[in-house]
């Protein structure tokens, strides 16, 4: 090679640029493609598309919230806006960083937080695939990097590089790549239901009334989970945001669990609405024969009943505005129309 020095370096840099481009393309090909149930990608993308400071309420927590709350139903009934940031097995660690990420774009009056994970350990290794589905859709930001750092520190096998460069995580998929994977320029669908996952299937479940005998005992709260809840609550207090703890209706819940979360809520002066309690289920008119998808999750009919109650509560307690006639929020009415069409609403 008889090129002058700087030309060689220039060529090296062009090569690196070309490589980076191909690497980014390869990452898009190899990354896991969302299915309907785990499409955290389109839900997150749509969240980023919401105009700044346009959301009155954020709902944050695991899949019971994603399936069990309908922000559009609440909009239709009460006129305030909200969005659900919820992925499968979403633990308090992710909840906390989702909050930080969301507050960069939104200034909600209230955050509704899933209270049930207080009782479960944060196990980043057992739920690695769910963490991927929560982290991968996030925009690159300080918050994302901090979340990755915490995950990697707690993990026995996960690496930061594999979160930053998804190809390093998904390269083994070379064996099972399909046409869908190669179609990387496909338009990614947006989510129309403000973070809700509409499920139509139903399964009759049996709610265990005997599990709610009054008792003084309460389940143990996990220390690590508790510390993330406290960080979450403290951050909201600093920002002047109210926090409401809830628990969605589910079969695997009981009085001791309820007591534990209730004690935590009382200790920190937070309201706790437990939709698993038999009296609550009666109050909102939930029908175990038709309103569940499975023992842990509601379908759209169950979600509607929870939302009517929760919306009324939030409206009354926090004096949330009615924006249904606000010209800036016309698109919400369009989305509501589609939602109602899909759910056979009024």
């Amino acid at each position: 090679m008889s090129l002058p020095g700087y030309q060689k370096w220039l060529r090296g840099i062009i090569f690196l640029a070309l490589f980076s481009l191909l690497f980014a393309l390869a990452s898009q090909i190899f990354i896991i493609k969302p299915t309907v149930g785990n499409d955290s990608f389109s839900r997150m993308k749509t969240f980023y598309q919401q105009p700044n400071h346009s959301l009155d309420v954020l709902y944050i927590g695991a899949s019971t919230l994603r399936n069990g709350i309908s922000p559009l139903e609440i909009w239709g009934q009460y006129g305030f806006t909200g969005y659900t940031l919820s992925t499968g097995y979403q633990n308090p660690l992710v909840n906390y960083y989702y909050l930080l990420e969301a507050l960069k774009y939104q200034q909600p009056d209230v955050v509704v937080l899933d209270g049930s994970w207080l009782l479960k350990p944060v196990n980043v290794d057992a739920q690695e695939s769910f963490l991927r589905l929560a982290v991968d859709p996030m925009r690159l930001s300080i918050e994302k990097l901090l979340l990755i750092r915490e995950i990697v520190e707690k993990s026995s096998f996960q690496t930061a590089s594999s979160y930053l460069f998804p190809l390093l995580r998904y390269h083994n998929r070379w064996k099972e790549l399909s046409e869908k994977d190669w179609d990387i320029f496909r338009f990614q669908p947006t989510d129309r239901y403000k973070g809700q996952l509409l499920i139509y299937e139903s399964e009759a479940v049996k709610l265990p009334v005997e599990a709610y005998q009054p008792t003084d005992q309460s389940s143990r709260i996990d220390d690590e989970a508790r510390s993330y809840y406290l960080k979450f609550i403290r951050h909201c207090r600093e920002k002047g945001i109210a926090v409401v703890l809830i628990n969605a209706p589910r079969v695997g819940w009981n009085m001791k669990m309820h007591n534990a979360v209730q004690e935590f809520a009382d200790r920190f002066g937070l309201p706790f609405i437990d939709y698993s309690m038999p009296d609550k289920i009666r109050e909102i008119g939930l029908d175990p024969a038709t309103d569940f998808h499975d023992e842990e999750h509601l379908n759209f009919m169950g979600a509607k009943k929870v939302s009517l109650h929760l919306g009324a509560y939030l409206k009354e307690m926090y004096h949330l505005p009615d924006r249904r006639n606000d010209l800036d929020f016309l698109s919400w009415n369009e989305d509501l129309a589609i939602y109602q069409q899909k759910t056979g609403g009024k």
Binding site: L22, G37, L168, R169, H297
Partner: peptide, 25 residues
């Protein structure tokens, strides 16, 4: 050569599609 190593190299977590396909309902 680079992509052969990146894609066909044995490293990282073995991809297990079933853990992703479970929908978390």
């Amino acid at each position: 050569a680079i992509f052969a190593v990146l894609i066909f190299g044995v490293y990282g977590i073995n991809f297990n599609a079933s853990s992703f396909i479970y929908m978390g309902f």
